[in-house]
Write a protein that binds this DNA or RNA. Structure first.
Lengths: 261, 261
DNA sequence: GACGCATACTCGTATAGACGAGTGGGCAAG
DNA sequence: CTTGCCCACTCGTCTATACGAGTATGCGTC
């Protein structure tokens, strides 16, 4: 095992860069150069204190920086580790095409199994609710909506939390109000009910998660979320569903194809 | 001015929740309830120390939490402030449609002025380079590429940093290799040169910024970036351009329209 | 009025020490 | 061999203190 000095070097006492930033720089360089690989344990706080000759709080500041950048994660009682890059799920823009809608399983399940992962759906909840102002505006101001909430997991890891909202007059007493709406999901049911889908609008934002989102998605610090709001329109131009999705950003790549016309 | 106690309450000494988390919770609640509005100054560290009866490091831990969540920003010598939500730029999926390409100005400029903002383009750099492995793969493995780098600002604030890569055999000694490629931008020039554009692929990721990105985009802590990689394909199916864009996530909403077919 | 300076306030950085709590290995008792 | 405990090591939380550096304000001088 190479000495810490050869891996991390020493500080520059003449630099006006804060000591904890210099330490973070050294660790970042070492990670970038592959001296520490994904999942590797970084030197313990005590080792770094001794190596750089600084106090523990200074070392902790440096490690906190790396965690904010999403480069490292700490585990109580074990150490600080280079954050592993999880396998990402690619969402293609044709994922809601009609031809994908005839299977018996949900789009998430089919796609995940094809990618060799073990999919799960979790904490399913179907409720009638008063819509928030934003959701109401997107759906044409219905007084009440049907909300379908669920969490998706890949290989046991939660990756996405989604809520679908439908105007209650449209969804009440239909298979859509059942926990399992049947093959092809609610989009297939909507089309059977005469709402031929025309197009989807998707709005994408990225931000840091709220504490609640950190809990439900088990997010490490330094991992943002992608917030996607999809509105489905039928052939008459009516908004028939809004789906509000929060995804762990380190688990997703979104992919869209745009015509150049 | 209401007393701190009425705004923040007190700690629960029986709770096993860490004190600095409780303080962060109180501040977060107060912000959510509108007791502190966007841009408002939070109580100073000293005031919080006195109010909660804890040490300064504990207060700083609490404030650091809020900053990681993107809720607050600190300004040296001034205080800690509720982070203002900047105006966002909406990127529509038809922003590269041919009909938007006949103006004398760039798409960014036209759109920003329409939204009432003052657009700037910055640190323009045009160079011939050896492509990275990823860029090369996307462009069909050219030996060299033309790279066009630039930074975009709105009302003086940097919001986006983009690099376009084109195969050198396609772009050398054309207006595309000029700092200003002319009206309609490089897409108009590509079409004039016989590369009729057919479609674009866009890949979207979100992550925390690297230190370099923090500098060029002047990012506050707790602000992720959206990383967009767009590939332009001509009618023959050849990839003629890859544009790698890093955006301040708090300044953007991406919007796509998908057919339901 | 314009300028410069002192000052008081802000957050930033760093030290030293203490105790708590999760993890894992070794060792002794059964 | 298995069980259970202890211990060493890890990070988490918290206190107390000190000095540095950026900002704003007021005041006195020019």
């Amino acid at each position: 095992m190479p000495s810490l000095t050869s891996v991390l070097g020493a500080l520059d006492p003449t630099s006006d860069r804060a000591v904890f930033r210099q330490i973070a720089d050294r660790l970042r360089e070492a990670i970038d150069k592959g001296r520490f690989k994904e999942g590797d344990k970084l030197p313990s706080e005590t080792e770094l204190v001794e190596h750089f000759g600084v106090s523990r709080m200074t070392v902790r500041n440096a490690l906190a920086l790396l965690q904010q950048e999403g480069l490292a994660v700490s585990e109580h009682g074990k150490g600080v580790f280079v954050r592993p890059r999880p396998p990402v799920r690619r969402l293609a823009s044709d994922r809601f095409a009609r031809r994908h809608r005839d299977q018996g399983k949900s789009a998430f399940t089919v796609e995940a199994e094809a990618a060799g992962s073990r999919p799960e759906v979790d904490s399913l909840e179907v409720k009638e609710e008063r819509p928030s102002q934003d959701i109401a505006a997107r759906l044409g101001s219905p007084r009440k909506v049907l909300a379908r909430r669920r969490r998706y997991l890949l290989d046991g890891r939660p990756v996405e939390f989604a809520t679908s909202y439908l105007p209650l007059d449209l969804a009440r007493d239909t298979p859509i109000a059942q926990p399992n709406p049947g093959p092809g999901g609610i989009y297939a049911r909507l089309e059977e009910m005469g709402h031929r889908l025309d197009h989807f609008d998707e709005e994408i934002r990225a931000r840091m998660p709220s504490p609640a989102e950190v809990r439900t998605l088990h997010l490490a610090s330094g991992v943002p979320v992608i917030h996607l709001i999809r509105t489905a329109f039928d052939a008459e131009g009516r908004a028939v569903e809004v789906c509000d999705t929060v995804m762990a950003a380190d688990a997703y790549v979104l992919s869209y194809q745009l015509p150049a016309t």
